[in-house]
Design a protein around this nucleic acid. Structure first.
Lengths: 210, 210
DNA sequence: GTCTATACACCGATAGAC
DNA sequence: GTCTATCGGTGTATAGAC
């Protein structure tokens, strides 16, 4: 269901060309957004005309969808194909991801710009990001369930809020970090927030706000 | 320094017209983004031609800057002009804001789209958002300092990370909520995360990840 | 202060040569 | 598979009438 058509792609040389285009598109869409980036800019970067891009991908919308799918495959390859961490290792993996991201501003920016842009009306990437977050929330929630089971406690009803919050804080910190890298320590802040949220689920404290 | 020119604005009728345009621009930029939204759409909504908009604001970039400034004044009026909450009341105010936002999807979407779009190259709103986050982080950090002083403890070095994280989790939850309002409870999750982070600063627990 | 008209540039997409 | 040429549409901004 995830990979519908794969073999009808012909020559291996063509596949390499497509990958070049996808890499260029990530860079352009990341620095200008999907609406702001143009096929002309992507074509220039890969040494083609914009007509060549359309020959390979049909339309600008379709190119975006393949960019998002490509990023997911490449980025999650070491996670999906090896094996998905679960339980406490998943939270450690998320922290490690934040540390890695602190050295990949380009990739982070593409993700931040495109995910936020996707909430606009009729954005071609909307469905992708909605499903992506749904999947990620479920994975984090499952990790919480595993950890709670290990400790012999039933998972509290705060798991749903905590799962969304962990993804949210990682995304939100990326925005602040991209705007002002010197003012925000992406890795340290992500680690602190994730530990705080995980801790709040495992040992609920009385609300400090009341 | 914040309000450079204010009196050279002539008739009161003109000022009302400008406000109409600003309101329309918030809606269009919110639903289509700054790059995607057009002066034509804004003009249609307010019953003018796009030339009329440019007469009032000079350029599209300038219009965006005045939209952001206008939103800040309107939204923070009840907070800035009355008095800025500090200490624990500030955190309660942030939670209350999340509850209010859950009924203002349009405003939230404009903020989410424009803030993320502002990290793109040469975006006219970049400086605004960079300074905005800088100010907000300082206000939250000050509230932490006040609360710590009230309890007779010196503010820990986790305050910087916690301040950025609180703003980040609120922003990130808005994205997930806009993409899938039924799957994410914006108010409840924001409250949970803020309490978790505040709690982690006030009573540091050993890292659950180690 | 708002309009019409227009200048000027650019975009995405298609058609057809090579 | 890539190019040139082009179409149709749209964008911001300016000039000048009213």
């Amino acid at each position: 269901m995830a990979t519908q058509r794969r073999q009808p792609r012909s020559r291996p040389e063509t596949l390499a060309r497509r990958r070049d285009i996808l890499d260029a598109a990530v860079e352009i869409f990341g620095s200008k957004g999907f609406t702001g980036g143009t096929l002309q800019e992507i074509a220039d970067q890969v040494g083609m005309t914009h007509a060549g891009i359309l020959h390979h991908f049909g339309s600008k919308d379709q190119l975006l969808l393949e960019v998002l799918r490509h990023r997911d495959e490449t980025d999650v390859a070491d996670l999906e194909e090896q094996h998905i961490p679960d339980g406490m290792p998943l939270f450690r993996h998320l922290v490690r991801t934040a540390f890695v991201n602190a050295h990949r501003a380009g990739i982070v920016q593409a993700y931040v710009v495109l995910s936020a842009e996707s909430v606009t009306d009729d954005h071609p990437g909307r469905d992708f990001f909605q499903k992506r977050y749904e999947t990620l929330r479920a994975e984090v929630a499952h990790a919480f369930a595993v950890v709670c089971a290990e400790r012999g406690v039933t998972a509290p009803e705060t798991v749903a809020a905590a799962s969304a919050s962990i993804l949210a804080v990682m995304d939100g910190l990326q925005v602040q970090w991209l705007l002002d890298p010197d003012a925000v320590d992406l890795a340290a802040a992500s680690e602190f927030a994730i530990e705080a949220i995980v801790g709040a689920v495992l040992s609920p404290a009385p609300s400090p706000l009341s």
